[in-house]
């Protein structure tokens, strides 16, 4: 192993062990060291967000410079990005600019993402209709029946209200017992996986910080 890789492993393991120790042992020194390292991590993460924004800006500016196909959309993206960034940056220094930021959010971002969610609804309904035509088997039928039961037991239909047996018995059973059991299994698996992954990083078995 190269010295550079070994150094990275040592740094990651030492700092990880310190933070972990401060999590379990409430010593003032360990807590302060742990908080300091976590603060550094938060700053690095925030800086990483900024780096991501600048990277996206450079990519689209290159695209406009090379006059590639769709460079007009890149121009809009760059303009919106710069405008929103400037407004967000000047708000602390100029608080009267805050309603402008709310307007951008309310006029552009919120309706766009809501429309995407609406399209997703249509797409899901359409996929459910074609499911049996594409794959007519037991699992497809069970999947569709589950969807129908949850929908029937979730809402109150016009002029009908909630459906007995479905809303108070079948739907809670499916959502809280069957789905809850599966979710618990997934969560336990995620917890064990996170634990093992953390230990591997601490002991140098895995080093995701290497960029590979």
């Amino acid at each position: 192993m190269k010295p550079k890789g070994l150094f990275s492993i040592i740094v990651a393991s030492v700092f990880g062990l310190l933070v972990l120790t401060g999590y379990f042992i409430k010593l003032s020194l360990l807590v302060k060291i742990s908080d300091l390292f976590l603060n550094w991590a938060i700053l690095l993460a925030a800086f990483a967000v900024l780096l991501g924004i600048f990277n996206l800006l450079i990519v689209h500016m290159r695209k406009m410079a090379s006059r590639q196909k769709g460079s007009g959309y890149s121009l809009l993206l760059v303009l919106a990005m710069l405008t929103t960034f400037v407004i967000g940056v000047i708000i602390p220094f100029y608080p009267k600019a805050a309603p402008a930021l709310d307007f951008v959010f309310r006029a552009f971002q919120l309706p766009i993402e809501a429309s995407l969610m609406a399209i997703l609804t249509v797409t899901l309904v359409y996929s459910s209709i074609r499911l049996l035509g594409r794959r007519l088997n037991v699992f497809s039928i069970v999947f569709l029946l589950t969807v129908l039961l949850i929908l029937l037991g979730t809402v109150s239909f016009p002029f009908l209200g909630t459906l007995p047996w479905l809303s108070d018995l079948i739907r809670p059973f499916v959502a809280q017992v069957l789905a809850g059991g599966g979710a618990r299994g997934l969560l336990i698996g995620v917890a064990l996986g996170s634990l093992v992954m953390g230990l591997r990083v601490l002991f140098g078995a895995d080093h995701p910080y290497g960029g590979k």
């Binding site: 609804t121 459910s128 209709i129 499911l131 049996l132 129908l148």
Partner: peptide, 18 residues
Amino acid sequence: GMGVLAALLLILVGGAQM
């Protein structure tokens, strides 16, 4: 309620046809 009802009908009818 109305949207869920429409989706249910679409899924039932369309699924049966498929």
